[in-house]
């Protein structure tokens, strides 16, 4: 626990006009760990990951990458600091194959300026192998023909390929069946084992309790608590989500009543 976290949020505020979406939120994500981010609808999960991804600029507070505070002015900055966000809609092109999708916008070219398809194919294969993916046979399959789980796999492997240090997964299992959910959760675990700091946004308590090392609970734009998985029960997490407190965990009663201070 003495290592410097890959990403630390300190007192992050974000408002949209009169609406306070986030107020003094703290969050720590460590390399090699899965940090779950949970909370009810409207608790500020999406706003928070958009701040991490550089899509929203924070009003106050710090984003600390590997110990050094940074200002994000756009998605490019976030990518430069090693952040990859895998959005729910996956952002894959159906008409292209797996390799093409993984290299979209960053295609390798030969000295003559033509596409270096061989190098790209090898690297794509390697990225999938690094995650021990067995569900994808050929990297030349067109994405339109893939299942939801396979698509999620491709999107995650893309982050690995680009050596992302912090990978944010937005509801990766939301649209998946039981078997595929299992496969993706295994993948999330292996991703963390590669030394990546994984931030998993999820509604599903079973998923969170299974793979998370640490759980951050957002309640009405505040971080109710960030706790270690081994220290809490599912009931406590659900209480934190619904009321903002659970026993001596979470916000004070005044804060949890939603009174803006």
């Amino acid at each position: 626990m003495t290592t410097i976290p890959a990403l630390e949020l300190r007192g992050v505020d974000k408002s949209f006009g009169p609406v306070r979406a986030l107020s003094s939120v703290n969050l720590t994500a460590r390399a090699g760990e899965v940090t779950a981010l949970v909370g009810d609808n409207g608790a500020g999960k999406s706003t928070l990951i958009k701040c991490i991804g550089g899509i929203h600029r924070v009003d106050a507070g710090e984003l600390v990458f590997d110990g050094s505070p940074r200002t994000l002015t756009g998605p490019r900055d976030a990518a430069q600091f090693g952040v990859a966000i895998v959005y729910q809609d996956l952002a894959l092109c159906d008409n292209l194959d797996i390799t093409d999708n993984m290299f979209l916008g960053r295609e390798e070219v030969t000295r003559r300026g033509t596409l270096d398809v061989n190098t790209m194919e090898k690297q794509a294969r390697r990225a999938l192998d690094a995650l021990s993916v067995r569900t994808v046979r050929s990297v030349h399959q067109v994405v339109a023909n893939l299942s939801g789980g396979q698509r999620q796999t491709v999107a995650i492997a893309k982050a690995v390929l680009w050596k992302a240090k912090i990978v944010v997964l937005d509801e990766p299992t939301a649209a998946l069946g039981v078997v595929q959910t299992e496969q993706v959760l295994d993948l999330v675990r292996r991703l963390a084992d590669q030394g990546v700091a994984v931030i998993l946004v999820s509604h599903n308590m079973n998923d969170v309790m299974r793979v998370a090392d640490s759980i951050g609970v957002l309640y009405l734009g505040r971080m109710a608590a960030q706790v270690k998985r081994v220290d809490v029960t599912q009931t406590q997490i659900v209480e934190l989500i619904t009321t903002g407190r659970s026993g001596d965990l979470g916000l004070s009663s005044a804060e949890s009543a939603g009174v803006a201070t």
């Binding site: 809609d89 952002a91 894959l92 159906d94 292209l96 093409d100 979209l104 916008g105 960053r106 295609e107």
Partner: peptide, 17 residues
């Protein structure tokens, strides 16, 4: 490649830079 990508999923292509 970018022509195909933009025709397949414009938003994804834009996000890819």
């Amino acid at each position: 490649r970018h022509v195909y990508a933009a025709g397949g999923n414009e938003e994804a292509t834009r996000r890819a830079g």
